[in-house]
């Protein structure tokens, strides 16, 4: 093999790089539409679960504003997806963070109708103790479904706590902290929405670079 000249090696290497690049470009070119469609489908599945069916006729996934408010957990900008029906605001999906988890932040997606009724809550990311706090995931238990169809406008402040602390929620056994953290985050986000909904729906939407949450 040592008979191969260095120049030839260089040429070979260049040719190989070129071939590989072309190959990848080709594959990318014919798979890109499918990839985008798959991503969109994933996003839609998640977001569609958070608002009632046929409650929006606009493309609310692109109708996004970035909100910096302590009510949403951190001062970092959080996304709010706005839904409209017949030109009228019909609800929103709010990204909220709770810093009061057992270990680390819990990021939530809260789907809320214009009248203040929560449609659904989902956990986007968390690092709670496996087996205890992680039952806030829908795969592990149905605890998070307790927020479904909750008419927040009609609730008093004392409602928002686990039963042990005088509230109305069942706690997750062994994970009072996690339960409380989620409950408080949902409470604050929903009350913020009720106070700011008109202002929110009037804002101009921003164009997001990424479509993945």
């Amino acid at each position: 093999m040592s008979t191969v000249k260095p120049q030839r090696s260089g040429l070979l290497l260049s040719a190989a790089v070129l071939t590989c690049t072309l190959l990848i470009i080709t594959v990318h070119w014919f798979s890109e539409p499918t990839i985008i469609a798959a991503q969109q489908k994933q996003l839609n599945e998640l977001l569609d679960n958070l608002l009632p069916a046929k409650s929006a006729d606009n493309n609310f996934k692109d109708n996004v504003v970035l909100i910096e408010s302590e009510a949403l957990g951190t001062l970092d900008a959080q996304r709010v997806y706005r839904a409209e029906l017949n030109g009228e605001p019909s609800g929103a999906i709010i990204t909220a963070v709770s810093t009061m988890g057992y270990s680390g932040d819990i990021t939530l997606l809260i789907g809320i109708e214009y009248n203040g009724t929560i449609h659904a809550v989902r956990v986007l990311s968390h690092s709670e103790t496996p087996g205890l706090g992680d039952v806030i995931e829908t795969q592990k238990s149905d605890w998070i479904f307790k927020f479904d169809q909750l008419p927040t406008a009609a609730l008093t402040n004392t409602y928002w706590a686990v039963k042990k602390n005088g509230g109305e929620f069942d706690r997750i056994t062994g994970a009072t902290i996690t339960s409380n953290a989620v409950i408080k985050a949902v409470e604050r986000a929903s009350s913020w929405y009720r106070l700011n909904r008109d202002n929110l729906h009037g804002k101009k939407s921003v164009k997001l670079n990424q479509t993945i949450l």
Partner: peptide
């Protein structure tokens, strides 16, 4: 056809 000097980059490629 692969010279010893460039074999690793080629494999990685």
């Amino acid at each position: 056809h692969i010279h010893t000097a460039i074999r690793i980059p080629l494999y990685v490629l």
